[in-house]
Structures are given as structure tokens and as C-alpha cells.
Simulated scan of single mutants.
Amino acid sequence: MIIGCGIGLIGTALIGRRKASSLLPHFIAKTIRSQQQYLFTLFSEHRNGIDVIESSERRKMQTNITNLKLVYETAIGEIPRNKVALEMMWPVIFSIVQIGYLLEACLKATNCPILSDETLSQLLLVFETMAKSAEQNGVIPMKLVPEIQGFSKLQKEIADLQDALQLAKRALS
């Protein structure tokens, strides 16, 4: 048993020591894109024929948020770890989770609007820009988050996520 633990410890030290933290940008981008798809489902005219509660977009978003939190928590436990980089990523993770909660809250809202194609297009551009920012090393210019009538908290959190991604990229470059 002691030999097995020693082999596992050596293997972890040599092979998997920075695996989770290197996966973090991919999981951030993947989660943002799943939120983008769910947002489109919630606020577009196409939602009328869809059971939004049982939609694959909702399940995918929930799964991606859970996986992102798991990867982040695993990265925190890595030896050695880049403490500064992980601390800079916490506001990003927090905002992504908050956006997930706010999108879920839209299900319960009776006043969930159908957004115009222009507003939806701008929101999709904002989300894709954030996903690209997470994947790439450079800072990508922020985009205007359009008004989502009746959902100002969601609009603010999307803007906060853009800010958090910008700050994390600047601090890590």
C-alpha cells in the first residue's frame, strides 16, 4: 500500500501536476458558450416550441458549470500551483456561476421577453467575445451589453464577467 501511494505521488508530481490549471481556459470558454446557447433559447422567439426546462441547452449549461467548478477546485489543489493566476480567475468563475443562476431564474419569470434579433445578435457577440478572450492570451476589446428589459441583474453580471476576464488577462500578461 505504501509503495502504491508512493508511485501515485511520483506520477502526480511528474505527469499531472499542472493538468487542471491548463484546462481552465478551455472549460471557461466552453461554459460561456453553453450559457450563450441557453440564453438564446430563453430569449428568442424559437423558445415557443421548446420545453426550456428540459432542453439540452439547459442541461449542457448546468453540466459545464459543474465541471468548471470541479476543474477550478482541482487546480487550487495542484502542487505546485500558480496562486496569483488562480486568484485572478476566481471573479471569472464567480460571474459565470452567477450568470448560470440568473439564467435559471429566468425560467420562473413570467415576464421573460422575446428579444429582437439585433439585441440577441449583440448578446451572442458579447458571449463569443468572452469565450475567445478566455481561450486566447491577449486582451480582447469589451463589447456593449445591450439592455435586457426586466433582467438588469443578468445584464450587469454579463458586464461584470467581461470586466473580470479583462482584469485576469491583464494581470497574467
Rank of each mutant, 00 (worst) to 15 (best):
E57W: 02
Q35P: 00
F27H: 11
T31L: 02
R59S: 15
L24P: 01
L39M: 14
L24Q: 05
N67Q: 13
G49A: 12
E54D: 13
N67C: 01
Q62R: 11
F40K: 13
L42A: 02
Q37T: 09
N64M: 06
E57L: 01
A29K: 01
Y38H: 09
F27G: 00
Y38L: 12
R33A: 02
P25Q: 03
Q37D: 15
T41P: 02
V52E: 14
D51S: 13
T66G: 06
F40T: 10
L68G: 05
T41F: 07
I32Y: 01
I65H: 02
I65R: 08
V52K: 12
E54P: 00
S44K: 06
V52P: 00
E45W: 00
F27T: 06
I65P: 05
S55C: 06
S22Y: 10
Q37K: 13
I28L: 08
T63H: 10
I28K: 01
Q36L: 05
Q62E: 15
I65G: 05
E54C: 02
R47L: 06
L42V: 07
F43W: 05
H26V: 03
H46I: 08
I65C: 09
L24D: 02
R33L: 13
F40Y: 14
L42E: 11
S55T: 07
T41V: 14
S34T: 14
S55A: 12
R59T: 11
R59W: 10
F40R: 13
M61I: 03
E45I: 09
I28A: 00
S34C: 07
N67M: 13
I65V: 15
S55Y: 12
V52A: 09
S44P: 04
L42R: 05
H26T: 08
N64R: 10
G49M: 03
I50Q: 09
I50S: 04
I32S: 06
R59A: 15
V52H: 03
P25C: 04
N48Q: 12
L23K: 12
T41G: 00
T41D: 15
S34K: 09
M61T: 09
Y38T: 03
S21P: 06
L68A: 07
K60I: 06
Q62N: 12
S56D: 11
T41K: 03
Q36K: 15
S21K: 06
E54R: 13
H26S: 04
G49N: 12
L42M: 08
Q36I: 00
L24K: 02
S34H: 10
E45N: 11
R58W: 09
A29L: 03
A29C: 08
Q37R: 14
V52N: 05
Q36Y: 00
N67F: 08
T63N: 12
G49Q: 12
T41L: 15
Q62G: 05
N67R: 11
S21Y: 02
L68S: 07
F40M: 11
S55N: 09
E54V: 01
E57M: 07
I50T: 13
I50C: 02
K30D: 08
Q37P: 00
Q62L: 11
F43K: 06
E45S: 15
S22F: 08
